[in-house]
Design a binder for these strands. Structure first.
Lengths: 349, 349
DNA sequence: TAGGCAACTGTAAACGATTACACTTCCCCG
DNA sequence: CGGGGAAGTGTAATCGTTTACAGTTGCCTA
């Protein structure tokens, strides 16, 4: 294996304590000695052993990230944001991704001991109990887009509510009154919040809500297609369709196209997430932009703060603002509009 | 902090050695004693300390992944493949992503000591020298899509050559003779190999190559757009355009659309990578599909093998096959065709 | 000139595990 | 009845660091 501090000390004719001192710039070392040691270190290409250091300092300079079984752009963007913030502060990132069942998550959670200084958990499936039970109490944790209520964890979330609210009001502003909603899975928080935003927006506009205009979906493109077909069969057709995510919006768009319905001429369509494809599909899809990387960055910054304060800081729930992106599919103007910027501090859910 | 093995030993009334034995199932332990220890472990919610264990066993159960500044789907897919294979064998994954300059890469490489058992490097910018100089010789390394020639490293690559070759022959099979190539950056290996495949395919078809039909590009959508404009201005227009990646193909498509040129009616267009957008753009883009996740999986499997054999195994260069995906943009048939499956063992480049 | 303080350095005890080795028992077999 | 081997357990060294503590200088000041 590669050289240890002992060998460096030997070759430089000093004790390991002195080597350690120049390594960490702690305590005084004579200039001449320092020079000799630095030189030896370079000759031997010595690098301190991470694990050994961790053992004594009780810190690993590593942050863990726990992800669900997650596809595509969202995943990479969130990691990008996390890694960026982490590296800026000299931390490494240990990812553990693509988990499905709970036993697996528990195993991974436990395996984190002695490996990370903090943890970001992004998982709709995990409950606060499971977390607390499988982690040392002193380990700082930040929940990312994870539905754990209560003030016991730091948490960062997308402003689903505000985004949906803004989009519906935008559609209404274009003159639409019969606005359908393509719902996401009922157990998904994002979906629930978007639904809430939709309903409240209608309410705020004085438009009466109709059960028939809320169609079931599961966030998949296919469910969007089927929903599109069902919406077309409706007695008074909706004039606008708001899908709770872009995949469904695209599926819906395809169904409309197949049926010969013009978008936005006959029906306006909008999505949520602003995935890259949204810009390219014809017609270009209006959507609610979610700053995914920022989500990651914010979570990591929060975590860094938690680590610094030794987890004794005040817990906080943050919401990351979304942004309306208006394109061809809803026939509106072209300028992006700020959608929301709620920031909810303190511990209430 | 959480309990240590010492506390477990104390509470269970045994020595730490015995606890360690039941932990790792090494050596004999009386049934009654084992029961008592297991119980104590669960009561105390004891989990072995990763760093401490690493120190003595000299293994971390973690694999490092070094990535360049990389966007989107490719990134997440490759990580997915890597993580999948890693977890299957009980390893964790330490990512370090989004590096740009070399000094940074060196720093990260060194920081890996004592943190990982092996390393996957995915970086067009790093040379073999830099790698060897900053890593312990005993550390297994697998290069992923990284242009390091020679037999000194394990390496996995995409079959860029075969994919490009197949696509050009497919276009020719549709009757095209003037096939333009939209090149990628000259310093990029992927781009170079695709260029080589293009040229060789033309040659194999007895079509004479024309300098004018090879247009510069840098893999960006914008450069694709500009290239599209230039191609339209050409005296005898090409009847088909093969872009070295999908982003450029899409840019090109937009340029053609803006100019009122019909695709595939007037000009056929094809790309490379088969990014998700390819399916959705109108007309749907023919492309060469790259199994990105498989790339990651294969790299990790190779790495696991290297770790098992203590890095004393035979080095090997592998190539992952690509697959032709024919869609509307080139006006051909609809059935996917196997493009290539070279596998090149042993050490020559 | 003695005492004290600063600068520099070394010794040794941690950190939390694994594991070689040695030590009891106990049982079995000749 | 004695010797040997297996089973069960403990002691202590070890991994590569950091760091409290103590020791040695040398210089300054009273």
């Amino acid at each position: 294996m590669s050289a240890s501090i002992k060998e460096v000390a030997l070759k430089a004719g000093v004790s390991i304590a002195t080597v350690s001192r120049v390594l960490n710039n702690t305590g005084p070392v004579a200039e001449e000695t320092r020079r000799r040691i630095v030189e030896t270190i370079e000759n031997l290409r010595y690098v301190p052993h991470g694990a050994a250091r961790s053992l004594i300092t009780n810190q690993t300079d590593t942050m863990g990230v726990l992800l669900p079984d997650l596809y595509g752009e969202f995943f990479s963007e969130v990691i990008r944001g996390i890694d960026l913030a982490a590296r800026r502060s000299g931390y490494h990132v240990l990812v553990s991704g693509f988990h499905s069942d709970r036993a697996e998550i528990e195993a991974v959670l436990r395996a984190m001991r002695g490996r990370v200084d903090g943890l970001i958990v992004l998982s709709p499936d995990v409950d606060a109990q499971t977390l607390r039970r499988n982690l040392p109490e002193t380990l700082p944790v930040v929940l990312l887009n994870t539905p754990v209520a209560g003030a016991s964890f730091d948490a960062i979330q997308i402003d689903n509510y505000g985004g949906a609210f803004a989009m519906v009001r935008h559609l209404a502003g274009l003159g639409h009154r019969r606005i359908a909603l393509l719902k996401g899975p009922a157990e998904n928080v994002d979906a629930r919040e978007r639904l809430r935003g939709y309903r409240d927006a209608l309410c705020s506009l004085g438009i009466e809500r109709s059960e028939g205009l809320e169609i079931e979906g599961d966030f998949s493109e296919e469910s969007g297609y089927r929903a599109g077909e069902r919406l077309l069969a409706l007695a008074p057709r909706p004039t606008a369709i708001f899908a709770a995510n872009d995949s469904m919006a695209i599926g819906c768009l395809l169904a409309l196209r197949a049926a010969g319905v013009r978008v936005p001429g006959d029906v306006a369509v909008a999505g949520f997430d602003d995935i890259p494809i949204a810009r390219y599909i014809t017609p270009a899809l209006s959507s609610v932009h979610v700053p995914i990387a920022e989500l990651g960055t914010r979570a990591m910054e929060r975590l860094l703060h938690a680590v610094e304060s030794k987890n004794k800081h005040e817990r906080r729930q943050e919401t990351v603002a979304t942004r309306l992106v208006v394109r061809d599919s809803c026939g509106g103007a072209a300028a992006p509009v700020s959608a929301s910027s709620r920031k909810n501090e303190g511990g209430d859910s």
